[in-house]
Amino acid sequence: MLNELLDRRYKVTDTLGSGGFGQTYIAEDTKLPGSPRCVVKHLKPSSNDPFTLQVARRLFDSEAQTLQQMGTHPQIPQLLAFF
Rank of each mutant, 00 (worst) to 15 (best):
T15K: 11
L5A: 01
L43G: 01
V40I: 14
L43F: 02
R9P: 10
Q54F: 07
V55H: 09
Q68C: 12
F21C: 05
K44P: 00
F83C: 14
T52E: 08
F21N: 09
Y25G: 01
D29N: 15
K31A: 14
S62M: 10
T15H: 11
G34C: 07
A81H: 15
F51I: 15
Y10S: 02
Q54C: 06
Q68K: 15
L53A: 01
Y10L: 00
S35D: 08
G34Q: 05
R9V: 06
F83Q: 14
V55Q: 13
D7S: 15
T13W: 00
L59D: 03
S18K: 08
T13Y: 03
Q75V: 07
R9E: 06
Y25T: 02
F51R: 12
S46D: 07
F51Y: 13
Y10W: 07
L16T: 04
T13R: 10
G19N: 06
P33E: 11
D61K: 04
D61V: 03
Q68P: 06
P74M: 10
K31N: 10
D49T: 05
I26W: 09
G20H: 03
M1K: 03
E28Q: 14
L53H: 02
T13C: 05
T72F: 11
T72K: 13
V39G: 02
T15E: 13
R9C: 08
A27K: 03
T72D: 14
D29Y: 13
D14T: 01
K44Y: 02
T30I: 08
G22K: 01
T24F: 00
S46C: 08
E28S: 06
T24V: 15
Q65W: 07
E63G: 07
E4F: 00
L2D: 00
Q23H: 02
Q78L: 09
E63H: 04
G22M: 00
T15R: 10
A56G: 09
A81P: 08
I26L: 14
G19C: 05
M70E: 00
A64H: 09
Y25W: 15
P36M: 14
P45F: 03
P45N: 05
D7R: 14
Q65Y: 09
R8K: 12
N48T: 13
Q54P: 00
Q23R: 07
S47L: 08
T66L: 15
N3H: 13
A27P: 04
V39E: 02
T30H: 07
L32V: 12
Q69N: 14
F60C: 04
E63V: 04
Q68R: 15
H73Y: 10
Q75W: 11
Q69P: 04
D14P: 01
K11M: 07
F83K: 11
F51C: 09
N3C: 04
P77S: 12
C38D: 03
L79S: 12
D29A: 13
F21L: 12
L2G: 03
L2Q: 03
